[in-house]
């Protein structure tokens, strides 16, 4: 028991979240292991983005518990929350690049605000490497408004990865990308994990991405965990609802 607890980096129990009368999450229980890629599946509007926002404290959940490492997110103090956020990287569904900053400044901002001091050379080196990884080294001095939707997404990914967080929450990392780039991003997620030994929650509808990255899958339906298991368990499932995702 002790040992298995040490393997868990995020554990969520009985999580509920409503907006007014609209109950979105209705008792979610799941956990994320060390160095694991956990894929979260679910219909549009099922509350996947809400779930990961609760984990970083951007939204406050109603009941239940969320533990990140040894920190309980419910009623967490400001200082503790900062500690938690320093460990977690977050890729927003819409990339959320800062409009008023260039790509370089976007990445520098994330890097310098989250990590200790680096020299300018170190920062530049890390930024170039991160942009290289997402295949966009030339856009370093562009403004976000000059980028296409898919490029923004990749810069958002670079901004998340440049910090090298222990835990990464990806909100639809491959949505809106062409199949080749999607494939590259999926492999980048795996490579990052192999290199930095981080744990990830990956929200996606892209079945090819699921097949590449998933160590374990959790499916959410009606605010609850509908099924949890490995890729094989999901693909061999006869339940029509699950089958419709893997068509």
């Amino acid at each position: 028991m002790e040992e298995s607890n040490n393997k868990i980096v995020i554990s969520i129990e009985g999580l509920t979240k409503s907006f007014g009368d609209n109950t979105i999450l209705d008792g979610i229980t799941l956990h994320l292991n060390k160095e694991e890629n956990l894929v979260v599946l679910g219909k549009s509007g099922s509350g996947k983005s809400v779930l990961i926002k609760c984990i970083v404290g951007l939204l406050q959940h109603d009941t239940g518990s969320i533990k990140v490492g040894s920190h309980e997110i419910t009623d967490i103090s400001e200082e503790e929350l900062i500690k938690v956020r320093k460990k977690i990287g977050f890729l927003f569904q819409g990339a959320a690049l800062y409009d008023s900053m260039t790509v370089r400044e976007n990445l520098t901002f994330a890097l310098l605000r989250l990590k200790e001091k680096f020299t300018t050379d170190q920062v530049n080196e890390m930024i170039e490497e991160a942009l290289e990884n997402v295949g966009l080294p030339d856009s370093i001095d562009k403004m976000p408004s000059e980028l296409s939707g898919g490029m923004k997404k990749r810069i958002g990914l670079a901004r998340t990865l440049v910090v090298k967080p222990d835990i990464i929450l990806y909100d639809e990392p491959t949505t809106g990308l062409d199949p080749i780039t999607s494939d590259e991003i999926s492999h980048l997620i795996n490579d990052t994990r192999d290199k930095f030994k981080n744990a990830s929650i990956i929200i996606t509808h892209d079945i090819n991405c699921v097949k590449t990255v998933a160590d374990r899958i959790v499916m959410i339906k009606d605010g609850k965990v509908y099924k949890e298991g490995s890729l094989e368990e999901f693909t061999s499932e006869q339940d029509p609802y699950i089958k419709s995702f893997f068509k």
């Binding site: 926002k53 970083v56 951007l58 900062i82 956020r85 320093k86 977690i88 977050f90 927003f92 569904q93 819409g94 959320a96 690049l97 800062y98 409009d99 008023s100 901002f109 994330a110 605000r113 989250l114």
Partner: peptide
């Protein structure tokens, strides 16, 4: 306009998770 568009496009959330 600037702050509300930052709110809508989750830039303010992104700042918050970047320890700002």
């Amino acid at each position: 306009a600037e702050l509300s568009s930052m709110r809508v496009t989750e830039q303010i959330d992104a700042m918050e998770v970047s320890n700002t």
